[in-house]
Amino acid sequence: MEGIKAAVCQLKVVEDKSANIKKASEMIAGAAGNGARLVVLPEMFNCPYQAPLFPLYAETFPEGETFKMLSAAARESKVYLAGGSLPERDGERVYNTSFIFGPDGNLLGRHRKVHLFDVELPGGITVKESSTLGAGERITVVPTEFGPLGVAICYDIRFPELIRLMALKGAKIIVVPAAFNMTTGPAHWDLVFRMRAVDNQLFVIAASPARDVNAGYVAFGHSIMVDPWGEVLARAGHGEEVLTGELELARIEKIRRELPLTAHRRTDLYQLRELADVPGDQV
């Protein structure tokens, strides 16, 4: 496959879970109707991004209403669906997890956010995800008909080792549900996503919730698609919209051939390796 049309559903998240699920379903159908084969939802798309609320909205796979919608939407629209992220309950633990479904509605894999966002930022923004969430323990790359798809969640993108390991596992596209805020967004949103694309010579898709200035946590918006040369293919505004872009996959090999970064790595001086698998994060 030489190219694929991708879409981000940048929806406005409200307190009503059912309303969020319904809106996401409608936007997925709209994206597919416009030709998208890969659809990406935002981080914590079915609940407000506030750590104390995550356990209240958490669902256990596969019984939860959000999971049922994601599977049905992928199957009905015949798309690869990176279901943003949502609070996933597993026993006594809750995780910030992205579930990825294939066009047949079957689960391809899941990514539990590896790096928890525990910060005190300028402007009085304090977030402590670890107060209610556990951390994932796996690097996530799932198979698709257009090549391996890497999945990270928000803060994960700031750790280049994680994304490089996805690239070494063959990832051609990295999808990143992400809810940067009004401090980190203006400062770093374009910068980090463009640099991870350039570092690894692959496509990066970042999916943000739409901005709601009345929310307890205000997302930056501006979902973005970046090509392997670091060029911005498509960028959303801060409101609710479906963003689409064409990913020319042949561009990856062309750029890697002309600027062979991976081949020039000095693995005699440094190495990057994945530790032994820890059970529990994948299908």
Score class of each variant (00 low, 15 high):
residue 228 P to W: 02
residue 250 A to D: 15
residue 238 H to I: 03
residue 26 E to A: 13
residue 150 G to S: 04
residue 124 G to P: 01
residue 166 M to K: 10
residue 190 D to G: 04
residue 270 Y to G: 09
residue 219 A to L: 07
residue 228 P to D: 08
residue 68 K to G: 00
residue 169 K to W: 05
residue 113 K to F: 02
residue 37 R to V: 00
residue 174 I to S: 00
residue 275 L to C: 09
residue 110 R to V: 07
residue 144 T to L: 08
residue 258 E to H: 03
residue 82 A to M: 07
residue 182 M to E: 15
residue 215 A to L: 03
residue 174 I to D: 00
residue 125 I to K: 13
residue 220 F to E: 09
residue 199 D to Y: 15
residue 11 L to K: 04
residue 250 A to E: 15
residue 142 V to E: 01
residue 41 L to N: 00
residue 42 P to D: 09
residue 181 N to S: 14
residue 111 H to F: 04
residue 231 E to F: 09
residue 195 M to S: 08
residue 164 R to I: 02
residue 269 L to W: 14
residue 80 Y to I: 12
residue 153 I to M: 07
residue 71 S to G: 05
residue 198 V to E: 14
residue 117 F to C: 14
residue 77 S to M: 08
residue 125 I to L: 14
residue 141 V to C: 05
residue 197 A to V: 10
residue 96 N to T: 02
residue 205 I to W: 03
residue 226 V to E: 06
residue 200 N to L: 07
residue 106 N to I: 05
residue 226 V to H: 08
residue 187 A to D: 14
residue 37 R to A: 13
residue 127 V to Q: 05
residue 262 T to M: 15
residue 27 M to G: 06
residue 26 E to L: 13
residue 63 E to K: 11
residue 234 A to H: 01
residue 255 I to P: 04
residue 115 H to F: 10
residue 110 R to M: 13
residue 262 T to R: 14
residue 136 G to K: 11
residue 87 P to Q: 09
residue 102 G to F: 00
residue 200 N to A: 01
residue 266 R to A: 14
residue 154 C to N: 06
residue 129 E to D: 12
residue 64 G to C: 04
residue 82 A to G: 09
residue 204 V to T: 13
residue 180 F to D: 15
residue 5 K to C: 07
residue 283 V to Q: 12
residue 129 E to V: 02
residue 193 F to H: 15
residue 169 K to N: 10
residue 217 Y to D: 08
residue 209 P to D: 13
residue 22 K to M: 11
residue 52 P to Y: 01
residue 149 L to H: 04
residue 262 T to H: 11
residue 254 K to D: 13
residue 35 G to H: 03
residue 133 L to A: 01
residue 269 L to A: 14
residue 6 A to T: 07
residue 172 K to F: 12
residue 32 A to G: 04
residue 111 H to C: 10
residue 272 L to C: 05
residue 47 C to W: 11
residue 188 H to L: 11
residue 160 P to A: 04
residue 129 E to H: 03
residue 51 A to N: 11
residue 146 F to D: 15
residue 153 I to N: 02
residue 128 K to R: 12
residue 51 A to Q: 12
residue 82 A to P: 03
residue 246 E to H: 08
residue 248 E to Q: 09
residue 153 I to V: 13
residue 162 L to C: 06
residue 115 H to T: 13
residue 120 E to Y: 08
residue 218 V to W: 01
residue 132 T to A: 11
residue 119 V to C: 10
residue 205 I to S: 03
